[in-house]
Simulated assay, not measured.
Amino acid sequence: MGITLCYVAVVVALPIAALVVKAASLGLADYWSIVSSPRAVASYRVTVLAAAAATAFNLVFGLALAWVLVRYDFPGRRLVDAMVDLPFALPTAVAGIALTAVFATNGWFGRLLAEFGIKVVYTPIGIMVAMAFTSLPFIVRTVQPVLEDLDPSLEEAAQSLGSSDLRIFRSVILPLLTPALLAGTSLAFARSLGEFGAVIFIAGNQPFETEITALLAFIRLEEYDYAAAAAIASVMLLAAFVMLAITNYLQARALRYTARS
């Protein structure tokens, strides 16, 4: 326990404490001026909206992918299962460069989308694509073990009572998956909020349009304005804590509902 607590204190608590202390060194007026500046507010909007869109996409696609990997046996299944973890192993900067090349107007996918007037690179769509790519494994790997451990007798009982596949999924399977879905969704959203390497190459980094909050904090660091960087980062830190608190509350409610059912 001592080693664990020491590790947590050094790796987690100490950097957070340093961030809070640095941000607190600003006066309240200066702090508010920095975090509420038009450029900072625009970066919050771009980051949160893109992260929310990427998480919503991964919630649907990740659940479908986990379902296919668990319930179906097909050629190349192990390869697809291994590729789910690719964003974990691939450096995010490499992922950003690869996504930029693929979705550029002369890229494999970008060329096809350009015919329909859809531009991905250097737009908010590109940010969503990068965030979705890097955060997908969190939902798949969180839901997949729960699907594997589901008792098939529950579905068989529902089928014997004449329930349709959609009704079985909605009334039997989904309630059991809800805690895992909430956990995976919160992790994916948190990863998207803090994503940096994969985004900066595909976003274009235009202030008020495609500039994310992590990049704005990095810019302040390059300007040696450490207090401003800490102030901006503290906003995202607070947002992460609020999100985790809400997620834990929803998970607790979902577990109580499942236990009653």
Rank of each mutant, 00 (worst) to 15 (best):
M1G: 10
A9C: 11
A9P: 14
A9H: 15
A9W: 14
V10W: 14
V12K: 02
L19V: 13
S25N: 14
S25G: 08
L26F: 01
Y31E: 06
Y31R: 06
W32L: 07
S33H: 14
I34M: 04
V35R: 01
P38V: 12
A42Y: 02
S43V: 11
Y44K: 03
Y44E: 07
R45A: 10
V48I: 15
L49M: 13
A52F: 01
A53Y: 01
A54P: 05
T55E: 05
F57I: 11
F57A: 10
N58W: 06
F61V: 13
G62L: 04
A64C: 09
W67G: 01
L69N: 06
L69A: 03
R71T: 14
R71C: 08
G76Y: 15
R77N: 10
L79Q: 09
D81L: 01
D81M: 07
A82T: 01
D85K: 03
P87S: 03
F88R: 02
T92S: 02
V94D: 01
A95E: 05
G96P: 03
A101E: 11
V102R: 02
F103I: 00
N106M: 07
G110A: 15
G110I: 12
G117Y: 09
I118P: 06
K119Y: 05
V121N: 00
P124T: 12
I125C: 04
G126E: 02
M128H: 03
M128I: 08
M128W: 00
A130L: 02
A130N: 11
T134F: 14
S135N: 05
S135P: 06
P137N: 09
P137H: 11
V143M: 01
L147W: 07
E148Y: 05
A157V: 04
A157H: 14
A158W: 09
A158Q: 04
I168E: 01
R170D: 01
A180H: 05
L181Y: 05
G184W: 03
G184S: 04
T185W: 13
R191K: 06
R191N: 06
L193K: 09
L193C: 03
G194P: 09
G197R: 06
V199M: 04
V199A: 02
I200V: 09
F201R: 01
I202W: 14
G204R: 08
G204T: 12
N205P: 03
E211I: 09
I212Q: 12
T213I: 10
E223D: 14
E223Q: 11
Y224C: 06
A227H: 10
A229W: 13
A231G: 11
I232G: 02
V235M: 10
L237Y: 13
F241E: 12
F241A: 08
A245D: 04
A245P: 02
N248G: 02
L250K: 04
L250P: 05
Q251W: 09
R253A: 05
L255M: 11
Y257C: 07
T258Q: 14
S261A: 04
